[in-house]
């Protein structure tokens, strides 16, 4: 704790006049996934991997890992000598309630198949998305996704805090707002809501408390919502 003498001694300036910045988002694309995947399958036997495409113009596809092998996959991604993804930038929780999607399916006898649209029910799940970058090699992002088996109140996922400490507070927030328990998290408590709070507010089916006692100028949908709220209040009182 001794005070060092010269104040300017410890500050180097990083002079890089020729490095005008590189776009870092091309390195870990689907193409390199084909090179990484065999290595990963050797390192972690039994891992299942799926590429989730992204149809936005800035398209960064994401990699879906099964929850049993998520922790080993994370260690692999961090310690692999080419990838060196040592920086977990963002941990997001997403709530996907049960939805019906339309899928084009080929049906009919062989030789006379037709494409038919079928509706399928996709069961709901909660998803945690990790954005990984590399500070050592200055590339990224690699988007990692892990999904829970359902949307109940006791769904759990392995915590990636042992791999990247930046997940510690963000996973606490996902637990607080979505209800996903993280196994082996060092300190899983609520982060933003108070301790006695019982709900998980960011879920799509969360009903906020009724503390909107009046609406100044209700009209259209707001009027409908206000009338429904009033009816609920009168029914319960």
């Amino acid at each position: 704790m001794a005070a060092t003498g010269d104040s300017a001694a410890g500050h180097r300036l990083n002079l890089d006049p020729n490095e005008f910045g590189t776009t870092s988002e091309s390195s870990a694309s689907v193409e390199t996934l084909e090179q990484i995947l065999p290595r990963m399958k050797v390192a972690i036997p039994g891992v299942t991997f799926e590429v989730v495409p992204n149809s936005a113009p800035g398209a960064e596809p994401s990699w879906l890992v099964d929850r049993e092998h998520a922790l080993s996959a994370a260690f692999f991604l961090r310690d692999d000598s080419t990838l060196r993804l040592d920086y977990c930038s963002n941990v997001t929780g997403v709530d996907w309630p049960e939805r019906t999607i339309k899928v084009k399916v080929r049906k009919g006898e062989p030789g006379a198949e037709k494409e038919v649209e079928e509706t399928r029910v996709v069961p709901g799940y909660l998803e945690v998305v990790y954005h990984l970058y590399s500070m050592a090699a200055k590339h990224g992002p690699v988007v990692l996704r892990v999904r829970t088996p359902g949307r109940g109140n006791d769904v759990s996922l392995p915590s990636l805090t042992p791999v990247w400490r930046s997940c510690e507070l963000q996973e606490r927030e996902v637990y607080d707002l979505f209800g996903v328990h993280f196994e082996n998290h060092p300190d899983l408590r609520r982060l933003l809501m108070w301790e006695g709070f019982k709900d998980h507010p960011m879920r799509k089916d969360y009903v906020p408390p009724d503390d909107y006692e009046y609406e100044p100028t209700p009209h259209d949908e707001i009027l409908e919502k206000a009338q429904a709220r009033l009816a609920r209040r009168e029914a319960s009182s």
């Binding site: 108070w194 006695g196 709070f197 019982k198 709900d199 408390p209 503390d211 006692e213 009046y214 100044p216």
Partner: peptide, 21 residues
């Protein structure tokens, strides 16, 4: 008091009542 969903009571009725519009 911070309850399970909301504060209890949601307002102090002696100080504030929703305005009658």
């Amino acid at each position: 008091h911070q309850g399970e969903q909301d504060l209890e009571p949601p307002c102090n009725p002696h100080i504030w009542r929703p305005p009658a519009i």
